[in-house]
Design a protein around this nucleic acid. Structure first.
Lengths: 225, 225
DNA sequence: ACCTGAACACCGTTCAAGT
DNA sequence: ACCTGAACACCGTTCAAGT
């Protein structure tokens, strides 16, 4: 009775073979992005992608050579969506804009950081960001040497800021969290941590956003007006 | 013939049970560090650690609750070895020293970055670095608000610099690599990448070390005598 | 071209058991 | 207390095979 012609004969019918059009690079990248944002990069597995796409694991290998290849595509895709001001007259204000946009992209998809670190400069998305920053810096009148130094410093500062963001952003609007931090600073041994202890009583508050702006200002200020 | 009393009867003798003293937290941490430096964090597996220590995988769980616990111990151990100048009179020069020492620790054990990102502030090693920086900044006369902003900016810039280091340090002393970068910049489409292209002809050279120093200067200079 | 089944060589970890 | 065996529920990927 259990023949291919009579698939309903048993309750243990084999799962239907997925039709031809189910998969595409875009569908895979979109789902990988969604999983990454929700549960982190480590949750992005070939097997889970396949399952949620209604397909067997090996099907993905028609579209990507490896899992790393998929993650690379996720990174490029997100970077390509980054909207950059293309008026090179914006000057240093424009640089701030680009760098903030990049920062926000990184923290909205916080797992991007780990992908970025493995990447090389040849990535088209990175190139776009670099081009925008260099064009604006040169337009603003910086010497080539300073342009390179400033651009490199901004990239590094932005990456570092984004990498600490997930562990720090809880403090941002939570007065409770903030006072617990002060409390824990006050419990530090006085001989070994005199400076940190003093911040237990008087701790200037910064949101992560403000820390980021502070650093960008520090790097750019000396070229201002 | 193959009885427990006669273990040499066959050539497939069971491997000897490891004696009691073979393992310790220190031995595990040291080996994990060695593997991490040689082959990266992803090469640090419980099974490999066990094999190279001459022991079965489960033996490690007497000393650590989980693999993450082992990696956390590696991070703490390395940070605790960091030598910090403990003269708070050193001022901003002392800050530079601390930050450079931290940078070098991170790039010498380049996989540390990925560990750091997951960590929290309560780590004793991080505390030591923070204390040193804050003490020096306050001693140098910075307002508390600036001390927090500068310390946060330096930490973030240092982390970002260290995270890009592995992908960039090849350029440092390799004129060949450098000219290949310039060559590839020259092949970029002129309309989309005018600024980057211009660097194909005239690219100010920076080692990673110099980029790092440039950024630290940018952040600290405005507080300099 | 696109999707699948089975298998390989790995993971971290639990649980119960030896010494 | 310290080390082990077996098993569980996972990985990414190769290779040969279906449609």
């Amino acid at each position: 009775m259990k023949t291919p012609e009579n698939p309903h004969a048993g309750s243990t019918t084999a799962p239907a073979r997925a039709p031809r059009g189910t998969l595409s690079r875009g569908a895979i990248v979109d789902l990988a992005t969604k999983i990454m944002d929700k549960d982190g990069v480590e949750a992005v597995t070939v097997r889970r992608l396949a399952k949620e796409l209604g397909v067997r694991p090996m099907a993905l290998y028609t579209y990507f050579r490896s899992k790393d290849d998929i993650l690379g595509a996720v990174y490029s895709d997100l970077l390509s969506r980054l909207e950059l001001p293309d008026s090179p007259e914006a000057g240093l204000a424009g640089v701030r804009e680009v760098v903030h946009a990049y920062f926000h992209l990184l923290i909205e998809h916080s797992a991007l950081i780990r992908l970025n670190i493995a990447n090389d400069i040849s990535n088209a998305g990175d190139l776009k960001v670099s081009e925008a920053i260099y064009a604006l810096l040169l337009q603003a009148g910086l010497e080539r040497k300073d342009a390179v130094g400033v651009a490199a410093a901004l990239m590094r500062f932005t990456l570092g800021s984004a990498s600490l963001y997930p562990a720090r952003h809880n403090w941002d609007a939570d007065a409770d969290y903030w006072s617990r931090v002060k409390e824990s600073l006050r419990t530090l041994p006085a001989e070994r941590y005199p400076a940190l202890r003093s911040f237990g009583d008087d701790l200037p508050e910064f949101t992560q956003e403000q820390v980021f702006a502070y650093g960008v200002d520090a790097i750019l200020d000396r070229f201002e007006g």
